[in-house]
Amino acid sequence: MRAALRSEVRKLLSTRLWWVLLLAMAGYLAFIGATLGLALALGGDVEESGGAPVLGGVDAATTVYSLVSAIGYVFPLVVGSLAVTTEFRHHTITQTLLAEPRRGVLLAAKLLATVPVGLAYGVVGALAIVLGGAPALAIAGDGAFLTDGDVVQVLLLDVLVTVLWALLGAAFGLLVTQQVAAIVVILAFTQFVEPVARLALGAVDALAGVGAFLPGAAADALIGASFFGELGSADLLPRWAGALVLLAYIGTFATVGRLTTLRRDVA
């Protein structure tokens, strides 16, 4: 198992993808952090915000800092899914299964190997959002609140949630091994389907509770502060339940992947 894990970690680190996407995420989050930080800070001064939520103080800070998950989650998802789908795209899965024919062990190694990568993405993501958001909040708003307990908690949970997103990506990659399809589904779901679904479900009373079980909503629940949550959509689950929902997605995808993709013959 340790050998399989080392092999999987080396796979992730031996191509340029992981740091290219990491840099892209850092740049993107710093930019978003600065933009939203300024928007919230300046919007707070202007009273005529027309019904949109007006955030100030620590709330503004936690909302900005929680963007690592709300906006940045597509990066760990994609990296996680690519860890699996590249094996099928480039047919390295053959060599991989020759080295480790116990497919359950391979599955566990694949998932575990994404943890350190998810950690790196989480830490860098949190740093980037602070780098972009804190100066904006401090200069134009009520302050950066970097030593505030709630803010520190949000930043730590950012890291945890990012690890879970990377795991979810890897598990999803086992389900949809076709690389392009996996990326398209991830982008479509995270950037369009889920945000729309959350707003739509939130608007229907009977379905309001369902939206909380979508992965993005579960992640928001875990972090306990959310940009989309602040937009006034449905109630979030308790924090522990959010974590469980994410773990359930990971477990379900991994199990189905084990029973389908990893049961098949490999060319």
């Binding site: 080396r10 031996s14 480039h90």
Partner: peptide
Amino acid sequence: ATGFHPGRTGLGH
């Protein structure tokens, strides 16, 4: 049928 990741070096593989 065995493939190689084109972005990996020979030694990396």
